[in-house]
């Protein structure tokens, strides 16, 4: 029981990070119907931006953790947003309107470029961050096994919940969100109504990148180390989460993320750590057989 609760907490934390990345996949897929394969690597780049800015601030002698955290958050979000914006401009926009696979291939190219670039610029070894924001709450303790909820875990789950709510509101209730959904459903008609489709798509990429930046910062904080290859696996898992939750659905992305995080954590705890990814992807395959549009995917009930 104690172990169970502890794993539940760990799984939800990991799942929150996947969920944040998954929102970026799901939004971009929603609007241009393309898997942004570079998204995982944009996330990875953000972990490095966060790391470098943390180290920079420490070198400058800023010792207040809260202040440092805030500054790093701003820098990371801004620079990662710029990445997301450039990737869309350089690799995707020129290919809009060409054959379907072209942007996909371009995305894979960008992904490889980003991970190699960071490998060359930062080296292949793991980079570590001095630990911060340590400590936490002991929920209960029995027979020497303490179930704890660390401050980092609280932060991660809280930030994810707030961002999910914020983005859900943005997409469902604001003019920008409406324009986004209009572009998703009929791009040409949106333009006929005065919506600047290119700008809407650009902003969607930027917002996805900002979420990836937050996820990157939290990931760095939680694990304390990052490596150039950290874009691929978390990226694929987050993509899986988006598909599992029903691509196009924001709450679906986070729920999918939580499920993947939980499966992975529990499988590692109770069965074997080597097969945790196999478990996560098998569940995905099984769910998709029975629910092809994912858990919260839309059922197609329209008239044509």
């Amino acid at each position: 029981m104690d172990v169970f609760v502890q794993q539940l907490i760990n799984g939800l934390t990991l799942g929150s990070i996947y969920g944040l990345i998954a929102i970026g996949y799901t939004m971009v897929f929603g609007i241009i119907g393309m898997v942004n394969f570079a998204h995982g690597d944009v996330f990875m780049v953000s972990t490095f931006i966060a790391l470098i800015s943390f180290l920079g601030l420490t070198a400058l002698g800023i010792s207040s953790v809260a202040l440092a955290f805030l500054l790093v958050l701003i820098v990371t979000m801004a620079l990662t947003a710029l990445w997301g914006f450039s990737v869309e401009r350089i690799a995707y926009r020129p290919l809009r309107g060409s054959f379907r696979l072209a942007p996909l291939i371009s995305a894979i190219g960008v992904s490889i470029f980003l991970s190699n670039f960071v490998q060359v610029a930062q080296g292949a070894r793991n980079k570590a961050l001095p630990s911060m924001l340590d400590g936490g709450l002991t929920l209960f303790e029995r027979d020497g096994y303490a179930v704890t909820l660390s401050y980092k875990q609280i932060l991660i789950m809280a930030v994810t919940s707030v961002l999910l709510l914020g983005f859900w509101y943005l997409v469902q209730r604001t003019p920008f969100g409406r324009a986004q959904r209009a572009c998703e459903q009929d791009r040409k008609m949106a333009a006929l109504l005065g919506i600047d489709v290119d700008r809407t798509i650009s902003l969607t990429f930027v917002l996805g990148a900002v979420l990836a930046a937050v996820a990157g910062l939290l990931y760095l904080l939680y694990y304390g180390v990052v490596s150039f290859s950290d874009g691929f696996v978390p990226g694929v898992k987050a993509f899986t989460a988006a598909v599992l939750g029903g691509i196009g659905s924001l709450p679906g992305a986070v729920i999918g993320g939580l499920i993947i995080g939980l499966i992975e954590t529990f499988w590692s705890a109770y069965f074997s750590i080597e097969y945790k990814d196999v478990a996560a992807f098998s569940i995905l395959a099984i769910v998709l057989i029975f629910m092809p549009s994912g858990l919260l995917g839309r059922a197609e009930v329209e008239k044509v």
């Binding site: 003019p175 324009a179 209009a182 459903q185 949106a190 109504l193 919506i195 329209e302």
Partner: peptide, 14 residues
């Protein structure tokens, strides 16, 4: 070309 997955009101808002 109405937006099929938006409500009537949202279409008019567009």
């Amino acid at each position: 070309r109405v937006f099929p997955r938006m409500s009537v009101q949202e279409n008019l808002q567009m």
